[in-house]
Nucleic acid binder design. Structure first.
Lengths: 247, 247
DNA sequence: CATGATTTTATGTATAGACATATAGATACG
DNA sequence: CGTATCTATATGTCTATACATAAAATCATG
C-alpha cells in the first residue's frame, strides 16, 4: 500500500522522529487548551491518515501520552484528554550533601549523636514496624559554608537494613549512605511548619520561635519500613521547589 | 519461525500481558537491588531469548521503564539501571475546594478583597511579566467546617487571562475557576515556613507568632505568566503529603 | 604513540498484518 | 418498557522484518 504523500507538515525543528512529532503536536493542542479536558482526540485510523503513517506509530505516541497521564484511552470509545483534578508537581528532594555541593557551597557534616539500641515502643510506632529488634538512632547537622543548613533526626531499622551496622555515620551522612547503599520501593514525605524550640534554635543558630520547615520522610522496601527521618530547616531561608512536569 | 517454547515462567497474577510481565520483572530486580544502579541489564536479544518473544515486545517494556526514568538506554553500549540522584516525589496539590470536600468536610469560601487595577511595578515583579496592563488582585479565605483552612493572596494577569474579567470571584474561588477554565503549561511551587504576623493570625484564627506553611505558586502558559498565588496554611495542623512514584 | 578512518553492534524508528479484548450501541426478547 | 444478547469497532498486544543512527571497538596510518 502506498504511503500518503500528503503527510501534514509539522514544524520540523531539528527533525525529530515522526512519533515524537505526533506526540508533541497532540501535547501542544492539549496544553494550549485547543483540545480541552474530556475532548475525544481523533481515532487512531484518523491520525494514521493525518500523519500518513502506520497505526503502530500513532499508537506509540499515544501510549507515551497515556503513560504521562495526559490522555486516557478507552477501548471502543476512543482516546480522551484527561481532566486534571490535581496540580501534580514533582518535588525533587536531593540528598542534602549533594544539594549543597551542587550549589557550589562547602558541605559540612557533624554527628551529634548515634546510638544503637533495642527498639522501644516509641521507635516501633515511629517506624510503623510491628516487630523490630534493633534500631540505630542518629542526630546530625548539615551545614553550608559553615552556616547551619538543616538538622536531621533519623531512625534506621537494623533488622531491615543490617548493612547499616557497618556504616560509619561519623564521617558519612546517613542520608547519603542510605541513598547509595539501600534500595527502596516507596517513600512518603510529610511537610509542615513549626517554630523552633530551644534545642532546634541552638542547633540551627536561629532564634527561639523562628519558623522551621519540617520534612518527615518514611522509606519502605516492599511495605517494610527501612528508615524514618525528620529534617528541620530554617523556614525563611530554605525553600523547597516543586516543578510541574507534564510527561 | 517457531516461537521459543522455553519461555521463562513468571508469576502470572491475573495473566498480565507479556510486555508488562517483562516490565514488572525488570522493575522488581531494580527495586530489590538485585540489579543496582549502573548495572547493565541484558541486551535486547538476550531478553528476547529469555522471554521467548520478539524484539519489539522487550523494547516496549524497556521504553516504558526509560520513560519512567528507571533505566537509561545508550546506543551500542546497552541499557543501564539509573543512579537516582534525587528522591523524586510527586506532590499532589489539589484545588483547595476539592481537597476539603474530598475530606468530607464542609467547604467555606469568603472573598476578602478583589480589585482590578493597572499593574504596578510590584505586580509586574511578582508575576515576572515584563509588560502587563491590567491585573486582578484577590484576597480570600478558605475554611473547612467553619474553621479557617488557608488564606490566599492572588494576582492574575488580565492580559494573559482576559476571561478572568468575567468570572465572579465572590462566589467561586479563583483557584477552582482557573483550574477549570485556563489551560497552562508550567507551574512552579516554592514552599517555606514563616510565622504569622498580626494580619495572618487574625485571618487564620491562630496566635501571632504561630508557624505557617507557605506555598507560592507561579503558573505559566508557554512561558507567559498567568497568575501568582501565595497560600498560607496553619503550619502545625496542615501537612503536605508527597509520595514517591516509581513509573 | 597518537590520531583518524572503518567496522561492528545495540538501540531507535517504522511498517504491514494478525489476533485479542473490552465495550458502546444496536437489536431481540420477555 | 426494561433487559439480555449480539455486533461492530477502537484500542491492546505481538510478530517478523527493515533500515537508521550513534557510539564503542578496532584497525590503519603518520
Amino acid at each position: 500500500m502506498s504511503l500518503a504523500t500528503d503527510r501534514e507538515k509539522l514544524p520540523a525543528v531539528g527533525k525529530p522522529t515522526l512519533y515524537k512529532q505526533i506526540r508533541l503536536d497532540i501535547e501542544r493542542r492539549i496544553l494550549t487548551g485547543e483540545w480541552p479536558p474530556g475532548h475525544r482526540i481523533p481515532f487512531e485510523h484518523e491520525l494514521m491518515a493525518r500523519y500518513g503513517c502506520s497505526r503502530m506509530t500513532v499508537s506509540k505516541a499515544l501510549s507515551e501520552l497515556a503513560q504521562a497521564d495526559l490522555i486516557e484511552r478507552r477501548r471502543k470509545a476512543g482516546t480522551f484528554v484527561r481532566r486534571p483534578t490535581f496540580l501534580s508537581a514533582v518535588l525533587k528532594i536531593a540528598d542534602i550533601r549533594a544539594e549543597i555541593t551542587a550549589l557550589g557551597r562547602s558541605y559540612g557534616y557533624e554527628l551529634i549523636q548515634c546510638s544503637r539500641r533495642a527498639a522501644t515502643a516509641a521507635d516501633r510506632a515511629r517506624l510503623g514496624a510491628r516487630q523490630t529488634g534493633k534500631v540505630i538512632a542518629i542526630a546530625c547537622r548539615h551545614s553550608a559554608d559553615d552556616v547551619p543548613f538543616a538538622i536531621e533526626d533519623r531512625l534506621i531499622d537494623l533488622d531491615a537494613v543490617p548493612e547499616a551496622a557497618a556504616a560509619d555515620f561519623a564521617t558519612e551522612p546517613p542520608g547519603s549512605w542510605l541513598l547509595h547503599h539501600v534500595p527502596w520501593t516507596e517513600a512518603e514525605h510529610s511537610i509542615c511548619a513549626i517554630v523552633a524550640d530551644q534545642q532546634a534554635a541552638a542547633a540551627l543558630d536561629i532564634a527561639i520561635g523562628a519558623p522551621c520547615l519540617v520534612i518527615d520522610r518514611h522509606t519502605w522496601r516492599s511495605a517494610r519500613p527501612l528508615t524514618a527521618v525528620r529534617l528541620l530547616y530554617p523556614g525563611e531561608t530554605h525553600k523547597l521547589i516543586a516543578r510541574f512536569k507534564g510527561g
